[in-house]
C-alpha cells in the first residue's frame, strides 16, 4: 500500500470529501465520465501491477516493483485480486500488467483477439507444471504409486471420512485451472476430489499430513515454495500430446508444461515508455523466482525486503532488463 502520494492540501481535500459524498447521491449527469484512468495520473510516472494470491507470482511483482521504484524512479501501485478479475482490470486499464499467467484461453480469446485491449508480454522464463503428487515418504515405500495405473490399488490409503470409501485427491482454490473431475472419470479411477477451497487451506492440510507422515494424493504444481519444505513426487498421468485437451469432457492426459506468460494493457505497452520496456525484458529462471518466494513464505520477510536482498545479490541478471538510456 503506497498512498502517501495522495497527501496534499487538507482543507481542500476535506471539502472535496463532503461534496463527493453528496455527488455520489446527486449524480449529476452533465457529461460523460472518464473511462479508464490513464497511467500518467497526476503527472507522476505510475505503474499498476496485480498481485496474485500465490507466492511465486508475488515474487515477480516484488522484484519488478523494487527495481521500478529504486532504479527507475517510478511509483508502483499494486493491487491484490483474483486471476480472472485481474484480466478484466487489465483490459480496463486499471492495472498495466499481469506478470505471471498460467493460461486463461477464454480470457485470452476475449481480450487479446476480440477486444484487442490486451497484448502479449512474452515469456516470464519460468515454466509451470500442474500435476498429481504424493509425498516422497510414501512414494519411497510404494514406488509403483507414481504410475496412474496403480492408483486404484492404493486408493484405500488415500481414503478419508469425506471421500465415501474412495481415495481422496485434494484440490486447491477454485481460482486454479483443473480438470481432475473429468480425468478421474475418463481414466476410471476410484478417486473423489475434495475441494479445499483456498490455497491456504490446501497447504495447511498438506503440512498436517506431512507432519504425521500420512499418505495423501493432491493436485499440486511447480514452482511452489512448499516443495522446498515437503518433498513430493509426481504421479505420471497418460502423456500430454498436442490437442489432447481440446475436449475437456473427454480429456485423459496429463497437464502440459506451461511457459508462464506476461500480459500488458495495450495502451501501456504502447505508451508505457521505459517501464513497459523493462517489464517486457523481465525474465528469470524458476530457481531465481523460488529464491525470492522462499524468502517471503519461509523466512517471513516482507516482499520488499526479499526483493531488496535478491536485487543486491543478482545485479548481472536485472541490469539487462533496464532499458539503456
Amino acid at each position: 500500500m503506497n498512498r502517501t502520494q495522495l497527501t496534499r492540501t487538507t482543507a481542500a481535500r476535506a471539502a472535496i470529501a463532503s461534496s463527493a459524498v453528496l455527488g455520489l447521491l446527486a449524480l449529476s449527469g452533465c457529461g460523460a465520465a472518464e473511462t479508464g484512468r490513464s497511467t500518467e495520473a497526476g503527472g507522476t510516472k505510475t505503474v499498476s501491477l496485480t498481485v496474485p494470491s500465490w507466492v511465486g507470482a508475488q515474487a515477480n511483482v516484488a522484484v519488478a516493483s523494487y527495481l521500478l521504484k529504486k532504479e527507475m524512479g517510478y511509483t508502483v501501485k499494486s493491487q491484490q485480486m483474483g486471476e480472472v478479475l485481474a484480466w478484466d482490470a487489465l483490459s480496463k486499464g486499471d492495472i498495466d500488467a499481469i506478470m505471471e499467467d498460467w493460461g486463461h484461453p477464454k480470457e485470452e480469446k476475449q481480450y487479446v483477439e476480440n477486444k484487442k485491449t490486451v497484448v502479449k508480454g512474452g515469456d516470464l522464463g519460468v515454466t509451470g507444471h500442474i500435476g498429481w503428487f504424493v509425498p516422497k515418504y510414501y512414494a519411497d515405500k510404494h514406488p509403483d504409486v507414481t504410475d496412474w495405473k496403480n492408483l486404484n490399488k492404493y486408493a484405500k490409503d488415500f481414503a478419508t471420512v469425506e471421500s465415501g470409501g474412495k481415495g481422496q485427491i485434494l484440490e486447491g482454490s477454485p481460482d486454479y485451472v483443473t480438470y481432475d473431475e473429468a480425468l478421474i472419470k475418463n481414466l476410471k479411477l476410484n478417486l473423489k476430489p475434495k475441494f479445499a477451497g483456498s490455497e491456504a487451506s490446501q497447504i495447511t492440510a498438506i503440512r498436517k499430513y506431512a507432519k504425521e507422515k500420512k499418505p495423501f494424493l493432491t493436485y499440486w504444481w511447480n514452482p511452489q515454495w512448499l516443495n522446498n519444505e515437503i518433498e513430493m513426487v509426481e504421479v505420471k498421468l497418460p502423456e500430454y500430446k498436442e490437442g489432447c485437451d481440446a475436449d475437456l469432457k473427454k480429456i485423459a492426459c496429463a497437464y502440459p508444461n506451461t511457459p508462464l506468460q506476461k500480459f500488458f494493457n495495450k495502451d501501456f505497452a504502447k505508451d508505457g515508455g521505459d517501464a513497459a520496456t523493462f517489464l517486457k525484458n523481465f525474465k528469470w529462471t524458476t530457481d531465481q523466482q523460488n529464491d525470492v518466494a522462499l524468502m517471503i513464505a519461509d523466512q517471513k520477510l516482507s516482499p520488499e525486503a526479499a526483493a531488496e536482498k535478491w536485487v543486491k545479490a543478482n545485479e548481472s541478471t536485472w541490469k539487462a532488463w533496464i532499458p539503456k538510456k
Binding site: 498512498r3 502517501t4 495522495l6 497527501t7 496534499r8 487538507t10 481535500r13 476535506a14 472535496i16 470529501a17 463527493a20 459524498v21 455527488g23 455520489l24 449524480l27 449529476s28 449527469g29 457529461g31 460523460a32 465520465a33 472518464e34 473511462t35
Partner: peptide, 28 residues
Amino acid sequence: PLFLYFLLHLSNSATSAVDAVYAGLAQL
C-alpha cells in the same frame, strides 16, 4: 450511455470520496 453518464460518475465519485477522506486522515 448508461455507463458513461451514470455508473461511471458513481464510480469516480466513490473513489475520490474515499481517497479524500483517507488523505484528510493522513494529514491529521
